[in-house]
């Protein structure tokens, strides 16, 4: 099954980090990604620019509204994602728990709705 792992953390914590601290954390993410890639479990992964760079679109009554920022103002922001292809939820959790943001932010594990599946439910 494929899962999207959403990396959430308070960007203010990122900003407060020294370069060395940040380097260490990025290194942790890379190590996990390399392992996933080596045995074919990694489908995709990207780090995102800060939420302040986001643009959100909404169309209401035929009118397109373009606004600055993410879809919701929250304490933690989406900072990156991984898509992994693994056996089941426990295997996805085993990957997700290794990301540093588990310790100071959170990781959300979402199963991907495979297009080949019928209606799903």
């Amino acid at each position: 099954m494929k899962y999207l792992l959403l990396i959430h953390a308070d960007e203010k914590l990122d900003e407060a980090m020294t370069e060395a601290e940040m380097g260490e954390i990025v290194g942790e993410y890379m190590k996990v990604a390399e392992e996933l890639e080596a045995d074919g479990r990694l489908v995709a992964s990207e780090r995102l620019r800060p939420a302040a760079t986001a643009t959100t679109l909404r169309e209401r009554d035929g009118e397109l509204l373009v606004t600055d920022g993410p879809f919701a103002e929250t304490k933690e922001q989406l900072g990156g994602f991984y898509i992994v292809d693994v056996a089941d939820l426990d295997a996805a959790i085993a990957v997700a728990r290794r990301f540093p943001s588990v310790r100071y932010g959170s990781v959300e594990v979402r199963p991907i709705w495979e297009m080949s599946e019928d209606g799903g439910g």
Binding site: D88, L89, D90, A92, A94, P111, G121
Partner: peptide
């Protein structure tokens, strides 16, 4: 039941530390 199916909750006894 839908969550078990859609989220891929396994039918396994966890091994080791889990």
């Amino acid at each position: 039941k839908a969550k078990v199916r859609e989220a891929g909750i396994p039918f396994e006894v966890p091994a080791g530390a889990l």
